[in-house]
Simulated scan of single mutants.
Amino acid sequence: MIEFVKGTVEYRESDYVAINVNGLGYQVFVPNPFRFEEGEEVYLSTHFVVREDAQLLYGFPTRSERDLFRLLLEVSGVGPKAALAMLSGMTPKQLISAIQLEDLKTLTKLPGVGKKTAQRLILDLKDKLKKLAWGYSESTLPLQENSEPPSDFSARRDVIAALLALGYNEEEADWAAQEAEKSAESSLSTEEWIKKALQLMMKK
């Protein structure tokens, strides 16, 4: 499994970027390749797909966007190409809001998404997104008290949700949550995790 790729953008094509990693070139399919500049150093969280006829690597600027891509793949009839097109047509925030608000009109504007696919997105993902605390449709996100040490993805989303509610963007919140977890000497409660993440953001 390839978890991430860090290197320099060698060149861009219509659906992928070529990343130079110490002289080795990786073809990484990304949403909106031309948002990256040639010569730019990038860090992409990746999803690796192995098929009988190909091995494909998909990359995203944040782990959260990569995890949303993986959630989209859980929907019946949605493959990597379709999921990538959705993330190219909308920001993660817009896509999640449309699903949570059951906004069929907005979802069907995405390339390759008809009414049936839009309905499956809502049916399969609305509750999952709520459970994972991806509540972008709300102006504020309540914190759930948790005295047990959080270790799973859902707990991390609670921390990120709290940071988003305080005005940080998705990339900043994702970075702070990860760094706080990595730098902790022992398991953290959700409240401790949030405090440590805020301390890191103030020092940044």
Rank of each mutant, 00 (worst) to 15 (best):
G167C: 12
F4E: 12
S151D: 05
G114Q: 02
E13V: 13
G135T: 15
E37I: 13
L132Y: 05
R63Q: 07
Y136E: 07
E171D: 04
V78G: 04
E148R: 12
L57P: 05
E37Q: 06
S45V: 05
L104I: 15
G39A: 10
D174P: 00
V42Q: 07
I19W: 01
G39L: 11
D53H: 03
D103E: 07
R156W: 12
R157L: 01
L24M: 11
A98D: 14
I160Y: 07
K196P: 01
V17A: 10
L57R: 01
D67Y: 06
D124C: 12
Y16L: 14
A133P: 07
M90N: 03
F153L: 14
Q94K: 14
I96K: 02
G25K: 11
E38H: 06
R51Y: 02
E10H: 13
Y58N: 13
W175R: 08
G77D: 02
P92C: 09
K109V: 12
D174N: 13
E41A: 05
A98M: 11
D158P: 04
T62Q: 01
R51K: 12
L73P: 08
S151I: 08
A155R: 00
W193Q: 03
L132C: 10
Y26D: 01
G39H: 00
Q55A: 15
S88F: 09
V28W: 02
S45L: 01
S189H: 12
G23A: 03
K203S: 10
D53N: 15
K116N: 05
K81P: 11
L125E: 06
D158N: 06
G7H: 06
E179C: 00
G7V: 06
I194V: 14
Q100R: 15
D15R: 12
A118E: 00
V50K: 09
K105Q: 09
E52Y: 04
D67T: 06
G89V: 01
T140M: 12
E3L: 09
M201L: 14
I96A: 05
L123R: 14
I19G: 09
D152A: 03
V5M: 01
T8K: 10
R35V: 15
E181P: 03
Y26L: 04
K195P: 00
D124V: 04
S137K: 06
L200H: 00
A197C: 04
K115L: 05
L44S: 08
I19A: 07
F69C: 00
E185M: 14
K115R: 15
L56T: 09
I160E: 03
R70P: 00
K115W: 10
Q27D: 09
I2Q: 09
K204W: 09
R66Q: 11
S154A: 14
A83M: 01
A82K: 07
E65I: 13
E181I: 02
G79K: 09
E145S: 10
T46C: 13
F29I: 07
S183C: 13
Q199K: 05
R157Q: 15
L73D: 09
L44Q: 11
P150G: 05
Q55F: 15
I99F: 06
R12P: 07
P80H: 10
G7C: 02
F69T: 02
M201I: 13
G7K: 04
I96Q: 04
K6F: 01
M201P: 00
P92M: 11
A176C: 02
V50P: 07
A197Q: 03
L101I: 11
L44P: 02
F153H: 11
K196F: 05
S97Y: 01
E13I: 08
A197Y: 00
S14N: 15
G167H: 14
Y136A: 11
V28C: 07
